[in-house]
């Protein structure tokens, strides 16, 4: 693996007249600003905080690790109260799809596209679950606390990063998230999955990141 990397690195050094690419060049630490905007907009049903570390390998591979903590607290119209909170993590790889224009100085701005695998292990509760049988005039109420759950999903991500002042980056990402597995009819499942969003087969997500390059 490492041998292949170094061979391609050498090739690039020979081909490229501009910069010689180091195996590991630098890394950027980012924080997602969207949850702050959501809080400012008064959305307190759902919160999701996340950050990322993205490294540059060989000048064109951008492996990334994202981690965060998310939760939801919602009372539905039928008075069922749902609450969850848990950590999540994603690992993936981006590529810079923006080719440097010939004759121009290469910039530190990137148009990144890539994939992620996400995972979250969390617990949730469903309280005040009412079932009414109108004809027989019977009602049962149940509380389900501490239901353990885990989910995995994959994402297709695209975004841009712009160096606004040296070392300081800003940018956004849009991601399409697709949950692995299906919910079995009748089985309990969480309304919200940390890091994934509402429990549907597919979700969209957006991040607005501020980052610092080391």
């Amino acid at each position: 693996m490492w041998a292949t990397f170094s061979v391609s690195a050498q090739k690039q050094t020979q081909d490229s007249t501009k910069v010689s690419e180091k195996l590991f060049r630098n890394f950027r630490i980012e924080a997602d600003m969207v949850p702050l905007a959501m809080l400012a907009l008064g959305n307190n049903e759902i919160y999701s905080f996340e950050g990322a570390v993205q490294a540059t390998f060989l000048g064109k591979y951008y492996p990334v690790f994202e981690a965060g903590f998310a939760g939801a607290d919602k009372t539905a119209d039928n008075n069922i109260h749902f609450k969850t909170a848990g950590p999540f993590a994603r690992i993936g790889l981006d590529f810079d799809v923006m080719k440097p224009k010939p004759g121009k100085k290469p910039t530190n701005n990137h148009f990144l596209a890539g994939v992620r695998i996400g995972y979250s292990a969390y617990s949730y509760q469903l309280n005040n679950v009412n079932v009414t049988q109108d004809y027989w005039n019977e009602t049962i109420t149940r509380n389900y606390t501490n239901i353990e759950a885990q989910n995995a999903w994959f994402e297709i991500v695209a975004g841009i990063r712009v160096e606004i002042i040296p070392k300081l980056y800003m940018g956004w990402s849009v991601r399409n998230k697709n949950r692995f597995g299906e919910t079995t009819p009748g089985e309990f499942h969480s309304y919200y999955i940390p890091g994934f969003g509402k429990n549907k087969s597919s979700n969209w997500g957006v991040n607005y990141s501020i980052g610092y390059m080391f």
């Binding site: 539905a76 069922i80 749902f82 469903l126 679950v129 079932v131 049962i140 009748g186 089985e187």
Partner: peptide, 10 residues
């Protein structure tokens, strides 16, 4: 369980 919006059925 059906969903949060629908709740449970017996």
């Amino acid at each position: 369980f059906i969903s949060l919006e629908c709740g449970c059925v017996v």
